[in-house]
Amino acid sequence: MTEPSYVAPCAPVSRGSPVCDRKGTDTPLRQGLGPAALVCGVPVLWMLLFFLFPLLGLAVMSFFSRGPDGEVTPPLTWENYRRLLGFGELGFDPFYPVVLGRSLLLGAATTLLCLLSALPLALWLARLPRRWQLMALTLVVIPFWTNFLVRTYAWQVLLSPDSPLTRLLNAVGIGQSGAGLYPGWGAVLTAMVCDFLPFMVLPIYVAAERLNWTLVEAAMDLGANRWQAFRHAVWPQLRPGVAAGSILVFLPATGQFVVPDLLGGAKLAFLGNLLQQQFGPSRDWPFGAALATATLGLMLLALAWRARSAARQETHRP
C-alpha cells in the first residue's frame, strides 16, 4: 500500500482487508481478560460513556414529553415520532416530513454530484507518474483538512453580489445581477459538493490505484468501445471505492447543519438545523431526541446495507 494512510479512515480496517491479512494480526492473539482490560478498559469505557450511552440515552429520551419550561418529563409517549411524521396536535402538517425528505434529497444530490466530479479526478490521479501523484494527492487533501466552517462561509464571499464569480454567472444568465447567489438551494449544493468532494475522491483513488488496466486493454482488444470498456472493465473494479465514498458523503451530508445554516436561509430547513433548534432555542429535548434517533436509525440502516453488500462481494470473489 503506497498511498498515504491518512486515507485509512476512509477505508476502515476490517479483518478481510489486505492490510490485516498480513502476518501481524493473525498471529498469536493471546487469551487474557486481565491485561486486555488494563489496556483497553479506559478507552472502551470512554467510548461507552461519551458515545454509545448518550446515543442510547437519546433514544430513551425520545419517548418522554416536554414540560412547560422545557424540562424532560413523563408521561411516556409516541407523540414525538407522530409529530415527526406530520401528525401534530393541530392535525396533519407536512413540515417535518418535508424537512426529512429534503435532507435525504440533499444527501443524495450531494453524493451524486461528488461522484460525478470525483470519478475523473480519481482515475486521473491514479494514472499520474509517482512523483506528481503525491503532490496532486496532497492538493486534494489540504482542503479536506481545512476547517469546514471556513470553507463554507467562504461561499458567502464567492457568491456575494460583487464577487467576480457572481458577475460571471450573472453574465451567463444565472441569478439577477446586483443580487447575491445565496441563500438558496444552489448555494447549499455548491458548498456541500465542495466540502465533501475529498471524501469521495480519496476512496475511489485507492480503488483506482489498484485497478488492473490490462483488463481494459483486453476489453479494447476484444472490440469494446470506450464506454463499454469503462462500464465492464473499470467500473466493477472501482465499485468498492465508490461505495465507501458514497457512504462517507451521504451520511454526514444528510445530517449537515453548518452549510444550510450559513447558505440556506431561514426558509430552507434541514434535519441538522431542526436538531440544533430543538436542543438550542426551542428547548424541546424529547422531540430533538426523536429527530436524532430517527437520523441515527437511517444511518445505521445505510451502514448495515453497505456491510451486507460488501460481505456479498467478498463471498463472490473467487
Partner: peptide
C-alpha cells in the same frame, strides 16, 4: 473491532447532541 469505525461515519451533530445530553 467491528464498531471501531462507526463513530467515524456518524454525523458530528449526532455525536454533539449526545455529548450535550451526557
Amino acid at each position: 473491532e467491528r464498531s471501531l469505525s462507526v463513530p467515524v461515519f456518524v454525523p458530528d451533530i449526532l455525536l454533539a447532541v449526545g455529548l450535550l445530553l451526557a
